[in-house]
């Protein structure tokens, strides 16, 4: 079983002073899968990743990456891993190419430069431009390329699509799928539910430093949270809407203007709403924090 796991974490704890970032994290990622690590900001995603890469040391618990202890065999783990940090900072005085050649030199020149150029073309990235002249999105492209250019066995990506425009987000997600198709395991963190749903085989949900659930991406859709603001032509009774399963009243300005929260499938709500004199309807997907509050409430885990 252990050799089928790309990542294995048991009871990991990590504190920054009085702040307990990880509070006994247990995590298993199978080889060859795309594992989405989902959680709101401050949940412990980045701390987990940095412990797995031995850039920070956990206070307790154990971790195995590709069967190796990252504390004892950090160099071997890093040789087989590609990493994209959540907050990418590159050397402003280098060009994109210079930066990538430096990272490649650190890996003993394992990457094929033809592949690097191909990736740069896919991302529409000019490697000759100095890093300091690149936009945040273009810097992120350099970051994604350095993570995948040596065809790692394990990709650890912290918010990989951060800063990319929607088109380039799709390119990045396609690269993730391609890496998996090539046999790699992908562990990526995100706080964007739709992104995780789109590519992950399994999703781990972390909150307050503890893994609260491991689920199939499809099941996330079933509990997707929507917020609907409805304006009616005339005062109405909301009984018919609130009797629909998963619908909750958030606020009511007067009898003609309400905000509702709908968990799961929207269809029953839309059908019930058809019976009302609707003047205007606006829907939005709330933040992951709101989804978490709806799913897990305010209880301390």
């Amino acid at each position: 079983m252990a050799e089928q796991l790309a990542l294995s974490v048991r009871g990991m704890t990590k504190s920054y002073g009085k702040v307990r970032a990880l509070r006994g994290l247990d995590l298993d990622v199978r080889r060859g899968e795309i594992y989405g690590f989902l959680g709101p900001n401050g949940a412990g995603k980045t701390t987990t990743i940095r412990c797995l890469l031995d850039t920070i040391r956990p206070d307790g618990g154990s971790a195995h990456v590709l069967g190796l202890d990252p504390r004892r065999d950090a160099v071997a783990v890093h040789a087989r891993t590609g990493y994209l940090p959540g907050e990418l900072h590159l050397d402003d005085n280098m060009s994109g190419e210079g930066q990538l050649r430096y990272f490649n030199a650190l890996r003993g020149g394992r990457a094929s430069w033809a592949y690097v150029r191909q990736l740069a073309e896919q991302f529409d990235l000019d490697l000759k431009r100095p890093i300091k002249n690149l936009s945040r999105g273009n810097k992120q492209k350099v970051g994604v390329i350095q993570a995948v250019m040596h065809h790692p066995e394990l990709l650890i990506l912290d918010e990989p699509t951060s800063g990319l425009d929607p088109l380039m987000q799709q390119v990045a997600l396609r690269l993730i799928r391609e890496a998996r198709a090539g046999g790699a395991t992908v562990f990526f963190s995100s706080h964007i539910m739709s992104e995780v749903e789109a590519v992950a085989d399994r999703v781990g949900i972390i909150r307050d430093g503890v893994l609260v659930e491991v689920a199939a991406p499809d099941s996330l859709g079933a509990r997707a949270l929507h917020r609907a603001t409805v304006r009616f032509h005339e005062p109405v009774s909301l009984e018919g809407l609130l009797s629909v399963a998963g619908v909750r009243l958030v606020s009511q300005d007067d009898d003609t203007h309400v905000t509702l929260e709908i968990v799961g499938d929207m269809s029953p709500f839309v059908r019930a709403l058809a019976a009302y004199p609707v003047r205007d309807l606006q829907t939005a997907r709330p933040s992951l924090e709101d989804v978490f509050l709806a799913a897990y409430g305010h209880t301390q885990i």
């Binding site: 890093h78 907050e87 350095q146």
Partner: peptide
Amino acid sequence: EHGRLDLIMAHPVSR
């Protein structure tokens, strides 16, 4: 402090 060492240390180099 500029956040660059985190990525450098994730490469196969010992401290």
